[in-house]
Design a protein around this nucleic acid. Sequence first.
RNA 1: GCAGAGGUACCCGAGUGGUCAAAGGGGGUGGGCUCAAGUCCCACUGCAGAAUGCUUCGCAGGUUCGAAUCCUGUCCUCUGCACCA
Length: 869
Amino acid sequence: MPAENAAMKIGGHPHDVTWSNIESIREDLIRMGFSYDWRRELATSDSTYYHWNQWIFLKFHEMELVERRTAPTNWCDTCDTVLANEQVKNNRCWRCNEEVRQKQFPSWWLKMTKYTDQLLDDLENIEFPDNVKTMQRNWIGRSHGAEINFPIIDTEEEIKAFTTRPDTIFGVTFVTLAPEHPLCESLVSGTKFENDFRKFAEECNKMSEFDRINMLRDKKGVFLGRYAENPLTGDQIPIYAGNFVVASYGTGAVMAVPGHDQRDHDFAKKYDLPIVQVLSEEEGKEPKVTGRAFEGLGWMVNSPKSRFDGLYGDEAKTAVINALEKEGKGKGTIQDRLKDWLLSRQRFWGTPIPIIHCEECGPVPVPENDLPVELPLDVVFKEGQSGNPLASHEEFVNVICPKCGIPAKRETDTMDTFYDSSWYFLRFTDALNDSVPFDKIKADYWMKGGVDLYIGGIEHAIMHLLYARFFTKALRDVGLNDVSEPFSRLVCQGMVNAPTPYCVDCNVEFHVDLDGQKCPSCDVKLTSRSAKMSKSLGNTVSPEIMITRFGADTVRLFILFAANPEAGMEWSDSALESNHRQMHQIFGCLKFLDLITDDVGSMDTWLSAKARMNFSKWNDAMNDVRIREGVMISHFDMLSDLQWAIRRGGIGRNTLLIYMKKWGQMLYPATPHLAEEWNQIIGQNTLLAETVIIDDSENNNDIVTLAAESTLRNLIDNTRNVKGLAERHANSPLTKLVIQTSPKWKIQLMIEAIELHAQNFDFMREGQSFIQSHSLFQDDAKRGDVMQYWRMLTIGSKKSRGRVFTLTEGERILITSGFDEAEYIVKASEFISETIDVHSVAVYAAGNGEDIAGKAKFAIPLQPGLAFL
RNA sequence: GCAGAGGUACCCGAGUGGUCAAAGGGGGUGGGCUCAAGUCCCACUGCAGAAUGCUUCGCAGGUUCGAAUCCUGUCCUCUGCACCA
């Protein structure tokens, strides 16, 4: 439809508009480097595709899944067509936001309601976000209840009323019908109530649905002059027509329980009808009088029949339903809100419905061999034109009836374009097939279990996703596939927001043209706030400009990293620039290929371990579509780790090359252009696009290697921190650092604690006696220190747990395997002195040298005592 | 009204019971490199402090030895549905 509207504007044909749009979007996609299989490209507006729309329609027709009927439909004046229920929001058209009105039309419907059960039940088996599932469930709107027959006194007729609350049956004090209900007419006709009713019905009819909903705060109705009988009590109750009853939901008749339904309560008050309370909020008590309806579940009271009082909730409902069924006066039923899919559109640019209307034979399907029924290209579109140009296209309309051969007219309605998107994913599995929509074997192969991951906006939660699910099931029943659910896993990407002018007082967002100006309606200076990017606000950015400025990979990196796909994000030029810098930094690492000439380096082991660890974390994240996490590793961590290794002591060529190769693979998914060039520069001669990436197993020692190094990093951080403080206390510049590592006995005790912890030892209860009988405890001079250390190790302080609980796995192995901390630090002492800017660094285990500044007592394993001189 | 999502430092944003003063980025500050600029590197960015303590994850309570995380209430924001019987 947008194509058709655009065609009218420029006086062209929607075909040309569509194709030029496709061209331009295809170009964008290619520039962004999306790796699609372009051989499978399809256009739903092309007859090679919509041919199969029509073919499928005929199959549905054979299955009696298609129906032509005249019914009130949602009509949008601006779009000049009817709309399906799903496409009406707040009584407004989902496309143009204009109000929708009801109009009677002979139209084609797809009987989606035949699949309600499956659509509802199968939600259990697919991985959709909960909110989408909830939205679909709400839309389907299944409610369990009862249909209750209220005989009309002095007639043979009865009113069937649907209710979800049969437990309130004894509180029914009147019955309300929708004004459109056929019984209304027959009840009033020829009586003195007829005039009032007609006036009322007309009033309801005239109102647009939108007004009606607004007016409904004022509930109105008329008495129809007749009474019905409560089927369980025989009580006589008046029958009303009410403006708040919806004809199309349930049976169009409501049993009114003013005691337990606020809507009925309001109505009863207005027309002075009795209000009876038959449920109590508290077991065994009389209901409270509150002046409002109690709508929750309660215990039945005041039942005129025995064996009901005291029943609660479902039990109460079942008891009433059983009683009704026993007497043949009602039954338990299910009502759904979901309706059939109104397929007809009175517009040109869609798939023609393959039907011929013959005066003799009625609607006749176009024979399969005559497909496709093609849209004529020789149609002129002009601005301001209304109506469907197909209807006036003689050549298109006038045909011969395929059944009896007399002149007949072609159907001029076209299909809702959601029909196109309801099975395109199946066509992708076999896009070039010209004898059937798709081959069953291919479709089943690719679609096994559904599309693995389907990403789309939340706006499709009901429309597209429900239609596609219905279609897949229906096509399965046609025999075209064995797949029941189209999408096994759905992820909804967030919206992209950008700043837009905003008036606080009026709570309105304005076009960016008004940036910095005053509010057009209240003259207050506009502020800025973040709003969904949209054309109407003008707060959009063009990907093309961004690509030209920064390159496709930077834009890709920004999109993938700046926000979790599910979260939505704030557009930020500065963030984009910083991602661009990141790209340069990564690419800049290639210079190390020239700078590093040594064969081996002291950080080789560490860097290789880090690479393996990073790769496997990255691999997990990517497999799990935690893209942001993955990109963080591939584009941020990998860079800083390499920088660290080089700064820390350097690496050898061989390690560098292996690192670079692995890194290139990790760079590929998010930034393929960079990655391929990278790969080539480091001397790989195959394309990454054709490379199967393998996660090679981690080395057993990796975890220890990394733990040792991260201990050192902590030490340096700590040193830096302490130095700053020490400087403030010292009179002269600090030139020497003394590091005292843990004394042996503390290591030994920690090892024992670690072993006890592994056996689930209860330190709280048994720790005290353990340490008191420990040999270390027997030394009077040490006793105090031992006790204090033991508490720190196993109990911790009020805020933090004992150290033994907070050790990482690597640290634990490090300590228990006899790691020589002092030796490790000595090796790094040159680096430490450079980094924190002191002339010398002395390292020894506490007790093995002078206890400088009394810092030995602070030394524990992996956290040495530090002193500056 | 109902349902869903959410409120985390200057900003964006990770984080579902202890290893959290809280990842990462932006911005800011200081330093290195440089004639200079930054498509470069390092550090700092709650308060105090020789390694500790204090205050902090919308607000108010609660559970717990221990809460950004669990529970209750409350306020606000966004999204969807809506006289649905």
